[in-house]
């Protein structure tokens, strides 16, 4: 009896009569949703507007502290030019691309291979290795950074080069600190910046492939490697976009790894971090705490964020779509 009632109820939803009845809570829901969305949106937008406005204020504009949103005096050209020069913008963007973004691309590829192995094959000790994978996610980079740095200064693979050194006196151990290899190597072995999480996202996606797909390829004579390259990769554009966006953003923002590995040729994130110090050493201000330095810092922030925003604008539709579609197969 109850079933019949509910079925007839669901049929009724198509009626206009029912819609009228529903509209009151619907409007309430709409208002509630909008209020929530807009107020949280305000929290997100606020610092961005603050950042942009402050980046325009000139030195004299800071004297009147009651004017925050519409500054008295502005000098956008001067602020941005100074920030640009102090951060050595062109060179540091190049350094970011060279050290960070390339290693992001390597990481995205390497993690896909590893995740495919975990998701599609059964082998001994798989449970244990998945546990290790979780451990690599849980133990933050910070914990292993110091030894990694010490190892990089004379890179050795399982003590082989060291042994050669002891026996023959020829030192084959290269110093990787300050070179791009310090960034590329971990990425290549899928142990780069937050690789664990990327592998995990990939695994979730790959394990949703139907098993028949692989078996069909197997019967048609394609080996697993061919199946991976020809079938798995082309049909996982969505998850690759997601991981790529994450990886690019994390690498662009990273200033821990480069502050440890590099001595010169700093990427942009580090230059921004160092901006107050640079301001004082260049003799702009004696005290980096004065409010005027804020304008330069905020101008630096805008310059720092812009390239990522442009990339995001380009990838945005695909990214949002990809989030919509990662699910369809799952």
């Amino acid at each position: 009896m109850r079933n019949i009632k509910s079925v007839s109820g669901s049929l009724l939803t198509k009626n206009t009569l029912n819609n009228v009845k529903k509209s009151a809570p619907d409007t309430l829901m709409f208002v509630f949703r909008m209020v929530l969305l807009i107020s949280i949106g305000f929290v997100i937008i606020y610092p961005l507007i603050y950042m942009i406005v402050t980046s325009l204020v000139s030195r004299n504009g800071f004297f009147n502290s009651t004017r925050v949103w519409i500054p008295e005096a502005i000098s956008p050209m001067f602020n941005y030019k100074t920030a640009w020069e102090l951060m050595d913008y062109g060179n540091s963007v190049w350094a970011t691309v060279k050290y960070e973004l390339v290693s992001a691309l390597i990481e995205v590829c390497a993690c896909a291979v590893t995740a495919y192995g975990f998701a599609r094959f059964n082998f001994k000790c798989k449970g244990l290795l998945v546990g290790v994978l979780f451990l690599t996610i849980l133990v933050p980079d910070m914990m292993v950074l110091i030894p990694r740095m010490a190892n990089y200064s004379n890179m050795d693979i399982l003590g082989i080069f060291g042994l050669v050194n002891k026996l023959t006196g020829i030192d084959l151990r290269p110093n990787l600190l300050g070179t791009a290899a310090a960034f590329y190597l971990p990425s290549l072995f899928s142990m780069g910046l937050r690789s664990g999480i990327m592998i995990f996202i990939y695994i979730q996606f790959f394990s949703s492939f139907p098993k028949e797909l692989e078996e069909a390829a197997w019967i048609d004579g394609a080996g697993p490697i061919k199946t991976f390259l020809r079938i798995a990769i082309p049909s996982s554009g969505v998850v690759i976009t997601t991981v790529l966006v994450f990886s690019l953003i994390w690498h662009w923002n990273d200033n821990l790894l480069c502050s440890m590995y590099l001595n010169a040729e700093y990427p942009l994130a580090m230059q921004l971090d160092l901006l107050p110090t640079t301001l004082t050493t260049m003799g702009y201000y004696l005290n980096p705490e004065t409010p005027e330095t804020l304008a330069f810092q905020m101008a630096g922030c805008v310059l720092f964020v812009t390239p990522m925003l442009i990339i995001y604008m380009i990838l945005q539709r695909k990214f949002i779509e990809s989030i919509d579609r990662v699910g369809i197969t799952g």
């Binding site: 390497a110 291979v113 590893t114 495919y116 192995g117 975990f118 599609r120 094959f121 059964n122 082998f123 798989k126 290795l129 290790v132 690599t136 292993v144 990694r148 693979i157 399982l158 190597l185 971990p186 290549l188 072995f189 899928s190 142990m191 690789s195 592998i199 080996g223 697993p224 490697i225 991976f228």
Partner: peptide, 16 residues
């Protein structure tokens, strides 16, 4: 093949 796919990661786990 499973081992082949995760081999680079295994090296990475040990080294890094």
């Amino acid at each position: 093949y499973g081992w082949i796919f995760i081999s680079t990661w295994l090296i990475g786990v040990v080294l890094f």
